Computed example of a mutant assay.
Amino acid sequence: MNDQVNSFPQVLTIAGTDSGGGAGIMADLKTFQMQRVFGTAVVVAVTAQNTLGVQDSYLMPLDMVDEQFAALAADFKIRACKTGMLGDANHVHQVALNLQKYNFGPVTVDPVMVAKGGAPLLEPAAVATVKEELLPLANLVTPNLPEAEVLTGLRAESEAQYPDLAHSLQELGAQNVLIKGGHASHNTVRDYALLSNGSSFWVSSPRKQTERTHGTGDTLAAAITAQLALGHNLQDAIESAKKYVSRTIEQTIQVGHGHGPLNHWAK
């Protein structure tokens, strides 16, 4: 196969759709476009969803998940990929098998468990499969605070305990960890990163009081994935992605009656 044909940076999102356009694969593809990488997708689930919540969801047949992976591997040169909504244990397992079968570059695992409106996006029984099969494949895992607590079984009463959560996630197999602090009640949103070499750092942004934050976690992970595909190191990728997400929240757009979407056009 002619590598020159695939010289443009290509990335992959493995997740669910959002018919409302604000999160999931829709947010990922918009983010990829703005980061100037070519986005592809493996659709694991389809949701009936808007800014008010998730009304219904449907998991794709497992053989269709396999066929999407195979189709991408046969034609594209994926440099980095991310996971999002995976639904249940069977689908987490199938995604993990495919990520072992094909080399799609560094894997960013966004362990999506609950939608902004409260709808569950991962069955409780699937958490063990994420821990046992997906985290060991993760170059980076990007949980928010509640997700990190579920995965580790630890409670974090303050930011001082974020390093404990991160070390625990490394012990589960993830090479690098980014604990997102958006659920904490501070005027500044502080995320904690622990890298595989033992170094760590914080990334911060002012908290904006707005309901228009639907898809924030997806967008952050997608922007990191894009930056990695462009050849940047992980710390630079995280810092760049954090700045981009901050802009998408600050430069708000008025869409929907509930938890509105980000402005992916943000400059």
Results as ranks from 00 to 15, higher is better:
L12E: 05
T17N: 13
S19T: 07
G21C: 06
G21E: 14
A23S: 13
A23D: 07
G24M: 06
L29P: 06
L29S: 08
L29E: 09
L29R: 02
K30G: 02
Q35E: 12
R36K: 11
R36C: 10
F38L: 06
T40D: 00
A41Q: 06
V44K: 03
V46P: 02
A48H: 02
N50F: 15
T51C: 01
G53V: 12
G53S: 13
D56A: 14
Y58N: 09
L59Q: 12
M60I: 02
P61A: 06
L62Q: 11
M64E: 04
A71D: 12
A71W: 10
A71I: 15
L72E: 03
A73S: 14
A74T: 10
F76G: 00
F76D: 03
R79V: 02
R79F: 13
C81T: 09
K82G: 01
D88W: 00
D88S: 04
A89F: 05
N90Q: 08
H91K: 11
H91R: 14
H93M: 12
N103T: 10
N103Y: 01
N103H: 09
F104M: 13
G105T: 07
G105E: 12
G105Q: 10
P106L: 13
V107S: 01
V109I: 11
V109C: 10
P111V: 07
V112A: 11
V114F: 04
G117A: 14
G117W: 03
G118H: 12
G118C: 08
A119T: 10
L121D: 08
A125C: 09
A126D: 03
V127E: 15
V127R: 04
